[in-house]
Design a protein around this nucleic acid. Structure first.
Length: 667
DNA sequence: TATTCCTGCCAC
DNA sequence: AAACGTGGCAGGAATA
C-alpha cells in the first residue's frame, strides 16, 4: 500500500507517467490497457531509481562542512590524536560484507563531539585511489583499545567483530544505540539507525539498501557519496545517544539497568557467539541417512494411500484424510486434532510419524552440518539479547536457532576434545519468580522446604505419590506446562484439551488451583489493573518496562487485543524479570570464564552452558554453582540450579556421577 | 524468481 | 465466545 500510494502521489504530481504502450507485431503501439497493480509496482521501481539518483546527488551537494574525508596518513594520525583527547566518541565501520569471519573493513567513521567533526576514513579494498592501504587500519588500534576514550555505536556487536578481523579489540563501548532503543521502546517497528533517526531525530534518512539498492557494495560507492553516508552514520549515532540519554535519564532505574546489564552483556554475547559449536558430522550423516530412508518410504506409502500429489500440502491432505476416516477435521494440528485419532486410524499414526521425522530432518538434522562455518569449522549461533519484547534472548537470524533444538538434535553438538560442556539450569525459574511477586505462602513454604512445586501439584492432580512425580516424569512435565499456562491466563477449553479432561473438570482444576494459592489470583488481578491503568508493567525493581498500550483501550464488550494485553502483563513481568536474572548471571559467568580460561557456550532462557577443560575441579564447579545461585535472587526466595556435565549436549551426568567416574578411571 | 502470508511445530 | 506467554523456521500457497 505504501508503494502504491507513493506511485499515485508521484503520478498526481506529474513526476512519473504510465509505461510506454507495448507494440504489436507490426511495430504499431497498442492501446494502453487498464492501469494494473503490476504496472504500479513496476513504476515504483522506476520511481525509486529516479529518487535514488536525485537523493544521492542532493546528499552530496549538501554535505555538511564538518564531514571530513581522511585520505592521507598524516591526517589519519592527526584525527586519532584528536580523538584520543575526547572523553567519548561515536564509531562505525563500513565493510565488504556481513560475514564477521570473512569480510573486512573498507572504512571507519568517527564522530568527535567536542570538535563537532565527523570523519570518514576509507581503506582498501575501497575502489578509489585515495583509499588508504588496509594495514593502516592499525593506526586506529590505540584509539579503539583505549580504556580512556569511551565509545558509542549502533549495533556494536558487529563492529567489535569487524575490528577483531584486523587484530583490534574495540574496548570501552559504553552505549549501543540499538540495544538502548530496545530498552527505551521494545515495540519499535525497526531498530535500523536510519529509521530511528527518521522517527526520533526529525532527520529523514534512507537505509543503505534504500539508497544504493539491495546488492550494492560499500567498497564500490564513490568516495564523495561514501563520505556523506558514512559520516552521517556516526553523526546520527551520536545524536541518537544524546536523545536516548535524555529520555532514559527520566527513568534512572532503567538507565542504571541499561549500563549495568545490557552494556557488559554485549561482550559476553560476543564471546559466546564466537565460541561456536563442534558438530558431530559423521553422526549427523549416519542418523540423517537412516531417517531419510524411513521418511521416503513413509512418504511414498502415504502418497499412494491418500492419493495426493504432495502430503506436505495441507490443502490436499485435509480432504483426502477426511474422506478416508469419514469425518470432518477442524485442522491438521498434530497435538490437538490428529493425536486423539491415532489409535483409531493407522493412516493417522503413519502420518504423525512422518511429520515428526520430516520436521526433525528438514529443520535440524540435515541443516546443522551445512551451517558449519568454512573458516572456523564451527557452527556459530546468533544470540539477540533483546529479541523478545519481554527482554528475553532470541536466537537464529542468519545463524542457527540454538533455543529450540530438540533433544534428538542436541546430540549433534559436542564438546571439543579435552573439553566438557557444563550446564547450569535454573530450577523452576518462573514459578520462583512468581513466588517472589505474589508472596503466595504455599509457594514460599514449598521453596523454603526444598519442595518441587510442579511435582506437588502433579502428585495431587494424578493422585500419585510425590516421589512418582519427580524430575523427568511425564506427570511433572505436563503439570509444568499447565501451571505456567494457567498462571498466564489459559482458558478452561484449552486446559481441558491439554490435560484430556472435560470442560467442567478443567474449570474445577483452575478454581482449585487459585483457591489453593489465592495470592496468585490477587497478584494477577492487581497486575492486570496496573496494566490497564498505566498501559505497561515494570520488571523487578523498575529495571525495565513492557509497554502494552492496548490494555488502556476503553471497550464495550469483548476486545481480543485488550484481553491479550491483559494476559501479557503478568506474563511479561515474570518472564522479563527471569530474563534479567539470566542476563546478570550470564555476565558473572562471563567474568568467571575469562578468569578460568573457560568459554561461554550457549544460553537457553533459564539455562547456561559453558565449555571447560575436562580436568576441572570440584572447587571450580562450586564456584560455577555459586554464581548461578547468587548472581540475582528473587527477594527471599532461594534459587535452585541443576548442573549437568556432558561431552554431548543433552547427554549429561550430575556432578557426583562425574566425579565418581573420574575417580573410577584414575583407579 | 522474489517476497509475503499461513499452518504447523521445535524450544523455554 | 474469544481466552497461556516469548521466540525462529520449514514448506506450501498466493501474489506480483
Amino acid at each position: 500500500m505504501r508503494k502504491l500510494r507513493e506511485v499515485k502521489r508521484a503520478m498526481d504530481a506529474g513526476l512519473i507517467g504510465r509505461e510506454a504502450p507495448k507494440c504489436d507485431k507490426f511495430g504499431k503501439p497498442k492501446a494502453l490497457g487498464k492501469f494494473s497493480k503490476a504496472e504500479a509496482i513496476r513504476l515504483y521501481a522506476v520511481l525509486a531509481g529516479q529518487q535514488r539518483e536525485s537523493k544521492i546527488e542532493e546528499l552530496v551537494t549538501n554535505t555538511p562542512s564538518n564531514y571530513v574525508l581522511v585520505t592521507d596518513e598524516q591526517s589519519l594520525r592527526q584525527v586519532v590524536a584528536d580523538a584520543l583527547k575526547e572523553p567519548i566518541i561515536a564509531v562505525d565501520t563500513e565493510t565488504t560484507g556481513l560475514d564477521v569471519y570473512v569480510d573486512v573493513i573498507v572504512g571507519v567513521s568517527l564522530t568527535l563531539p567536542t570538535q563537532d567533526k565527523h570523519y570518514y576514513i576509507p581503506f582498501e579494498p575501497t575502489q578509489d585511489e585515495r583509499a588508504l592501504p588496509p594495514e593502516m587500519v592499525g593506526e586506529l588500534k590505540a584509539l579503539m583499545e583505549s580504556q580512556e576514550v569511551a565509545k558509542v555505536l549502533h549495533n556494536a556487536l558487529y563492529d567489535i567483530a569487524m575490528f577483531e578481523r584486523h587484530g583490534i579489540k574495540l574496548n570501552n563501548v559504553v552505549w549501543d544505540t540499538m540495544s538502548a532503543m530496545h530498552v527505551l521502546n521494545e515495540n519499535e517497528a525497526s531498530y535500523a539507525l536510519k529509521n530511528l533517526a527518521t522517527t526520533y531525530l526529525n532527520e529523514p534518512s534512507d537505509t543503505f539498501s534504500e539508497l544504493f539498492g539491495r546488492d550494492a557494495k560499500f567498497a564500490e560507492v564513490p568516495l564523495d557519496v561514501a563520505l556523506v553516508y558514512a559520516a552521517k552514520d556516526t553523526d546520527l549515532t551520536w545524536r541518537m545517544y544524546q536523545f536516548q540519554l535524555t529520555h532514559l535519564s527520566k527513568m534512572p532505574t532503567v538507565l542504571d539497568y541499561y549500563r549495568r546489564v545490557e552494556v557488559p552483556l554485549m561482550y559476553a554475547v560476543y564471546d559466546m557467539e564466537r565460541t561456536g559449536f563442534e558438530i558431530d558430522v559423521e553422526y549427523a550423516a549416519e542418523y540423517g541417512a537412516e531417517m531419510k530412508v524411513e521418511i521416503d518410504s513413509l512418504e511414498k506409502e502415504l502418497t499412494t494411500e491418500l492419493n495426493v500429489e504432495n502430503i506436505n500440502s495441507n490443502q490436499q491432505l485435509k480432504p483426502a484424510l477426511e474422506a478416508i476416516i469419514g469425518e470432518k477435521l477442524p485442522n491438521l494440528d498434530a497435538k490437538r486434532t490428529l493425536k486423539p485419532l491415532k489409535k483409531k486410524h493407522a493412516i493417522i499414526a503413519k502420518l504423525l510419524r512422518y511429520r515428526e521425522l520430516a520436521k526433525l530432518y528438514s529443520t535440524y538434522i540435515s541443516v546443522l552440518p551445512e551451517k558449519i562455518h568454512p573458516v572456523t569449522g564451527r557452527l556459530h549461533a546468533r544470540f539477540n539479547p533483546n529479541g523478545a519484547r519481554t527482554g528475553r534472548f532470541s536466537s537464529g537470524g542468519n545463524g542457527v536457532n540454538l533455543q529450540n533444538q530438540p533433544h534428538a538434535a542436541r546430540r549433534l553438538f559436542k564438546a571439543p576434545d579435552g573439553c566438557v560442556i557444563i550446564g547450569g539450569d535454573f530450577s523452576q525459574q518462573e514459578v520462583r519468580c512468581a513466588a517472589y511477586f505474589t508472596n503466595e505462602p504455599v509457594l514460599k513454604i514449598a521453596y523454603a522446604e526444598g519442595k518441587d512445586v510442579y511435582s506437588s501439584l502433579a502428585s495431587e492432580f494424578y493422585g500419585k505419590p510425590y516421589e512418582d512425580c519427580g524430575d523427568g516424569t511425564p506427570e511433572r512435565k505436563a503439570m509444568k506446562v499447565v501451571v505456567l499456562a494457567v498462571m498466564y491466563g489459559m482458558g478452561p477449553g484449552a486446559l481441558a484439551d491439554m490435560l484430556d479432561i472435560s470442560m467442567d473438570e478443567a474449570k474445577r482444576f483452575m478454581a482449585d488451583f487459585f483457591a489453593k494459592m489465592p495470592r496468585i489470583q490477587s497478584w494477577i488481578n492487581e497486575t492486570q489493573a496496573f496494566t490497564k491503568k498505566h498501559g505497561y508493567v515494570w520488571m523487578d525493581g523498575e529495571q525495565r518496562k513492557r509497554r502494552l498500550p492496548e490494555a488502556k483501550r476503553k471497550t464495550r464488550g469483548y476486545d481480543p487485543e485488550v484481553s491479550r494485553a491483559l494476559r501479557q502483563g503478568p506474563n511479561a513481568q515474570i518472564q522479563g524479570t527471569s530474563a534479567i536474572q539470566g542476563k546478570v548471571t550470564l555476565i558473572n559467568l562471563h567474568e568467571f570464564c575469562k578468569r578460568k580460561g573457560w568459554q561461554l557456550f550457549c544460553v537457553v532462557h533459564d539455562e547456561t552452558l559453558v565449555l571447560a577443560p575436562e580436568d576441572f575441579t570440584r572447587e571450580d564447579l562450586a564456584e560455577f554453582e555459586r554464581i548461578m545461585l547468587e548472581s540475582y535472587t528473587f527477594g527471599d526466595v532461594k534459587n535452585k540450579t541443576d548442573i549437568e556435565i556432558a561431552r554431548i549436549w543433552g547427554e549429561g551426568m550430575t556432578p557426583s556421577e562425574w566425579f565418581a567416574k573420574q575417580k573410577e578411571e584414575t583407579e
